[in-house]
Amino acid sequence: MTAPAAAMPLERLTGVFPFLKRYPLVAIAGVILGIIVLAAVFAPFMFTRDPTALTPLHRLRPASELNWLGTDHLGRDVWSRLVYGARVSVMVGLTVAALSILLGLVIGLVAGYIRWLDAIVMRIMDGLMAIPGILLAIALVSVSGASLTTVIVAIMVPEIPRVVRLVRSVVLTVREEPYVEAAVSVGTPLPAILIRHILPNCIPPLIVQATYVCASAMLTEAILSFLGAGTPPTIPSWGNMVAEARLLFQIAPWNLLWPGIALAVTILAVNILGDGLRDRLDPKLAKRM
């Protein structure tokens, strides 16, 4: 954290290919994620049918040429539901990551730089950290009703304090740097100091944090849906598929297997990508982990 260069993240991203060669696992994770995101975006073209169409005569069928992964207890095509379910996970993961990083960044920058605000903001964050995130999300969803927006907000709120703490810790070290002092002494206005001189230092650790938030958000969405306090049951999501399949687990375990594998593989890929980015962008943190 010595150079003020705003171009640091870009600089560190060069030489990506030798890096991927050294860490083939990160490359594989990237490819898997790419496939999942593409499948989610182009779900209607992935040899799918209407994921909510009921065929009561074809219930709980094992895999066949017609239904690649079989059908569920209402005769819906599991492959189609799996592909459309990726949409929910990808959307929740990306939205929660983007929003909580953005909000956490603003709060952390301001709290880290303005001393009198720091105490107040950090007490609120301590309080938020003490509340079990999943329970808070369950409460928010059950009070305001199940919708995808509620789920995203409910998952995002408990993620914010960790981002704020990260940003604040970077700000606290950077604000003592000579170049910040220099900027202050030539009369640079506060917003310019924050944005031009302090913000760039926060970006590499924040990119890493974003991947972890994304993984954690996908996990929480699945847990909320599994418990019946998440994505509305009319929308196919992996959590909802597991929640429905658990009732008939002993008769048709494969209906639980597919969304379970999809969840585990996706979250694993995001985490591996995050670890790779951490080793690349934030070697100091990588050493401590």
Binding site: A222, I223, R246, G260, A264, D275
Partner: peptide, 22 residues
């Protein structure tokens, strides 16, 4: 460790039930 952070609790639970209980 990476697996522990990635596999959802219920997936782990049903995996264990299927193998060791059923």
């Amino acid at each position: 460790c990476v697996l522990g952070f990635s596999v959802p609790v219920f997936v782990m639970g049903y995996f264990l039930i299927f193998n060791f209980a059923i």
